[in-house]
């Protein structure tokens, strides 16, 4: 499989990365090189093989239901580029 420039643009859009015309061309080449390289995985016979879900076999730890966090709005917005009254501010969203 090799990607065309339309695919590069679609993927960049999905990833929310603006790309210039030049970048599209460069990325196309790089992506194809990498995809060409990983293509060889197709030759491995994986019939009956489970995909890996956790590399270290163990039971997932769980928490009991208790309020142990929160009440730190100041910390939550401390690094935000734009805030007001502990809200984050973003360019207006239309639904």
């Amino acid at each position: 499989m090799s990607v065309d420039t339309a695919t590069v643009r679609r993927v960049a859009r999905l990833a929310r990365i603006a790309v210039s015309e030049d970048e599209v061309a460069t990325m196309q080449g790089e992506l194809n090189a990498i995809l060409g390289f990983v293509e060889q995985l197709g030759e491995v016979d994986v019939s009956g093989v489970e995909p890996m879900t956790s590399v270290t076999p163990m039971v997932m730890k769980k928490r009991e239901d208790a309020v142990t966090d929160g009440h730190k709005a100041e910390d939550i917005v401390a690094n935000a580029p734009a805030t007001q009254e502990h809200f984050f501010m973003v360019p207006k969203v239309v639904e």
Binding site: L41, V49, M52, T53, V55
Partner: peptide
């Protein structure tokens, strides 16, 4: 399936 799932299966191997 062709990429991610295949890779995770190879990882098992």
């Amino acid at each position: 399936d062709a990429y991610y799932l295949q890779a995770q299966k190879v990882r098992t191997l």
